[in-house]
């Protein structure tokens, strides 16, 4: 199932609606890396509220998304990791080190606002 990607101002919002296969996750990664350029986005939010489990492949793909979009000049923030999912992730040894996270969409947008203000308005 393809994840819809919306544009809001300078940001892209990918809102995951249901369980994703490995292929779906890879497709999301390619789509975001491309669209950051096409739509000249400065920030990306991946909303994982609907994911009831995140295994090593999902976490690796999210980390790749964050690192790849950063190389393209956009900051990514992962929002909506559920408490049980966080618990299982830590036990699995999965950390998302170096990737911004926020509680929910609202906090994610606030984070990107601050982040991009600092980066783009100082210049």
């Amino acid at each position: 199932m393809e994840v819809p990607i919306l544009k809001q101002g300078h940001f892209l919002i990918a809102s995951i609606q249901s369980a994703l296969t490995d292929a779906d996750l890879s497709q999301l990664r390619e789509a975001l890396v491309l669209r950051v350029g096409k739509l000249r986005a400065r920030g990306v939010i991946v909303d994982v509220t609907a994911l009831d489990v995140m295994d090593s492949f999902a976490v690796r793909t999210l980390r790749d998304i964050a690192h790849m979009t950063r190389l393209r000049g956009a900051e990514t923030v992962i929002v909506g990791i559920q408490p049980e999912v966080a618990f299982a992730m830590v036990q699995l040894g999965l950390t998302l080190k170096g990737v911004a996270t926020a509680l929910d969409l609202e906090e994610g947008l606030a984070f990107l606002d601050r982040f991009t203000k600092e980066r783009f308005e100082r210049a």
Binding site: D52, V53, M54, D55, S56, F57, Q82, P83, E84, V85, F87, A88, M89, Q91, L92
Partner: peptide, 12 residues
Amino acid sequence: GDQTVIAAAISE
């Protein structure tokens, strides 16, 4: 919580 833990282990 345990359901999620079991699901994650199965996924791996």
